[in-house]
């Protein structure tokens, strides 16, 4: 276990958001485990159970060198939002956002039944991106689901987004920490493909540029 390096803020508050079934909980545990290895004290707040069934799912990570924090981030105090679905980013920004927040957003929509049935319209991509840019200090938009499907399974989008986060120079995590963490959490035959997804996510963010879109 290495000594915890300085964080941009302590506690550093990160939200991973998405829709039930996108692997949000796994992503937060992988990231939590990576940061624990680095010597940080991590507190994760999750909602699951009923919320899994097509609802919005959110994980709160509190990363600290000082100890345990509330599993719910206080309103307006997120430093980073990782969003597996673009409209979910907006929902989280409304509650936990502030002008200094960074957003990493997977661009693939998941239509809710209100949209499928025609009660509501899903916003246009350009509109959505502009709103997220307006509500953040930096934003990255990544076609993670598309890239994951190219790798054979859309579910890898969650790990790609964690890979992207590792390349954004926000938290001290890298591919080696990731490999250690997933080796403890997953069956051996899944480690290598997840490492590929992680690396692909990091490349995608670097292709967008470190300063965001």
């Amino acid at each position: 276990m290495t000594a915890a390096a300085n964080l941009l803020s302590d506690p550093f508050n990160l939200v991973i958001t998405g829709v039930g079934g996108q692997g949000n909980v796994l992503a937060s545990r992988v990231l939590g485990s990576m940061l624990t290895q680095k010597g940080y004290s991590v507190t994760i707040g999750e909602t699951f159970g009923a919320s899994q069934r097509g609802g919005s799912v959110m994980s709160h990570l509190r990363i600290s060198s000082k100890g345990t924090w509330s599993p719910q981030i206080p309103k307006g105090r997120a430093h980073v939002v990782v969003s597996l679905e673009p409209t979910e980013a907006l929902r989280v920004l409304y509650e936990y956002g502030n002008p200094d927040v960074y957003v990493l957003c997977n661009t693939r929509p998941v239509h809710s039944i209100a949209v499928i049935s025609g009660q509501f319209k899903y916003p246009e991509q350009d509109e959505l991106r502009q709103w997220i840019r307006d509500l953040s200090a930096k934003a990255w938009f990544l076609e993670a689901t598309g890239a994951a499907m190219a790798m054979g399974n859309a579910i890898f989008a969650n790990i790609m987004m964690i890979g992207a986060l590792s390349a954004a120079d926000i938290l001290p995590v890298d591919k080696d920490t990731f490999k250690d963490a997933v080796s403890n959490m997953m069956a051996a035959d899944k480690v290598s493909v997840n490492c590929d997804a992680f690396a692909r996510g990091a490349d995608m963010l670097l292709a967008e540029g470190i300063s965001g879109a």
Binding site: G20, G54, G55, G76, L90, G97, P99
Partner: peptide, 26 residues
Amino acid sequence: AAPADYVEKAGLCVMAGAPGRDLTFC
């Protein structure tokens, strides 16, 4: 918690851009 104008703007974006997500069977 956050600047009032930020919260107001974010509220408008959610209303316009984040359609409700009722629970559904998988």
